[in-house]
Write a protein that binds this DNA or RNA. Sequence first.
DNA 1: CTGAAAGCGCTTACAG
DNA 2: CTGAAAGCGCTTACAG
Lengths: 347, 347
Amino acid sequence: MNSNRTRPNLSQIAGLLGVSTATVSNALSGKGRVSSELADKIRGMAADLGYMPSTAGRALRTGRSRVLGLVLPDIANPLFPQIAQAIENAASKAGYGILIADSRGDVSMQTEAISRLLERGVDGIVIVPRRGTRIADIGSPVAVIDSPSTPGNTVSADHWQGGQLIADHLIALGHRKLLILGNNPDSNVQNDRIGGLKSRLPADVHCEVLWIEKQERCHGTGCALGLQQKVEEGFTAFAAVSDLHALRALTELQRAGIRVPEQVSVTGFDDLIWSTVVTPALTTIHMDMPLIAEIAIDALVSVIERDSGDSEAGTEQPPNSASATRQQVPMSLIVRQTSGPPQTFPH
Amino acid sequence: MNSNRTRPNLSQIAGLLGVSTATVSNALSGKGRVSSELADKIRGMAADLGYMPSTAGRALRTGRSRVLGLVLPDIANPLFPQIAQAIENAASKAGYGILIADSRGDVSMQTEAISRLLERGVDGIVIVPRRGTRIADIGSPVAVIDSPSTPGNTVSADHWQGGQLIADHLIALGHRKLLILGNNPDSNVQNDRIGGLKSRLPADVHCEVLWIEKQERCHGTGCALGLQQKVEEGFTAFAAVSDLHALRALTELQRAGIRVPEQVSVTGFDDLIWSTVVTPALTTIHMDMPLIAEIAIDALVSVIERDSGDSEAGTEQPPNSASATRQQVPMSLIVRQTSGPPQTFPH
DNA sequence: CTGAAAGCGCTTACAG
DNA sequence: CTGAAAGCGCTTACAG
């Protein structure tokens, strides 16, 4: 019945109004100088018809799709929702859409994901790289979100400073024997967090790192971390480099009958959804993903739009990387456990 | 230095080989009949140049973008990674890309997210709707993943049957007093799970539902669910409609000094990442997201591709909905806690 | 088996 | 202030 069988285009609006498509285009984009009465009439008609510009037509003409790709190391990563949401939001504000690509599995999948996006004509790509991966020049603008220690990184949370916040917090609570829980010594993010944490410990504080090996399917009691033993050795604080490990520690300790936070403290990183639903809630470190995303998108967009501007102006800056920015966004401490260790030591 | 300054196109390949663009196009797509020697030569040249067809050119010509939209109720939802990963995979196999749109916040955001995708020219949309939302005809093919109780649903896990699996499991362990934990009486998914669960309980089994109210920021002890009290009342099984609630229950019980699974059982739903890292690991229900995604994408693609086929053939089928399919995918039980209740009752 | 031509919808110099 | 024209890269009837 109604005319939504086929989307209206510029020619139809032009035909209905007896003007040229150029004028309609100019009126709608506000670029060419069109008399305000005509422009109003055109905009009105476009609205009445529910006109939507064809992205294909525009992309073909301008050479830009206004779509960005997002590649994540492990899309099943619990941090993913936060990142994707923030990136989509920032991109949307800047007038871009986000095409996702899963790169789970090995490193070759990451490369494959990138080329899939390139084939789809994205104008640029946001990458959260796999651990230990170096992003090669892919002939397209790229923004990397990882850690300042990663070559080519564009923006990241200040993981080092986040580690410092945890250290300060635990020290202030009176802890003197800390166990750090990590799962991958090759992760720049984890190493930064651990480095920052250690950097703030007074000389008399004892600190060890426990690397949790990857145990995919690990039911039953076979894969306990041995934290009860650690408590017996006098450790009173368990600082995990992610909420997931903190959760693991918390439940293992609780199961062993150790009271958190009265006997020991457990802290996480990332402020994931469950850190607030567990009892006791986890003290953790929150990152400002919206800001990180905004910086990444802005960097990417400025590279994309610089390319279309003056062509041969600055040969000194790398053509496709947004890494010149190299910003770090401060993290913040979310305290949800306030008790200290059983007895407080003098300094 | 090298020629990746600008992407090669059909004309360049044609020019280099002294043939027409039509022939190159035909050779590359395998459609027109081109002699195999020529076709090989063309494919070789295309590969040498690193030719990638322009999606814009193709989309403009064919009227199809080969991009699908994905709208999720709450992108920060912990289930999101699984869904997004499965959908992206299935779409990729079918030759489509996935554009994401965040619809967090109220229902109007969902509508907005949908139009943003439509403006970007997607060929169809996969929607996991907000609770209580009915998806209007948006003039574009749609596949809905929610629950069979949702009008217009295309495919979903068989939540009812999942609930039955939980009931059978708990009954087999000897439980006779169950507490179901839900958080939203308006959720079709939750109601299906609860309905299925209840449908399998023998008449002599006592069962209550505890609706957990939404408490966004809920630290300290103010927001306990009072499960210790329930244990004192004789409840021995806590069946949550999601792993998140199960986690909440588990930690609250452990904190109260109740031993899981020796004293009480805790079960979840969805098999999220953390259900395996907690101690004790959670018994839960796993859904076959890859299969659900595949069915959703196939339904969507078949509607999209039927539209381009015979035009006026069947006016009886709804133009844009893939819901004729209405498939349900069975769920499976993952047992990670095997103990029964303290004493076993006779039937 | 191969090619010339048209056209998808848009934007952008360029004329008037 | 407005319009005629070209062209982005592709595919698809249609001729030959």
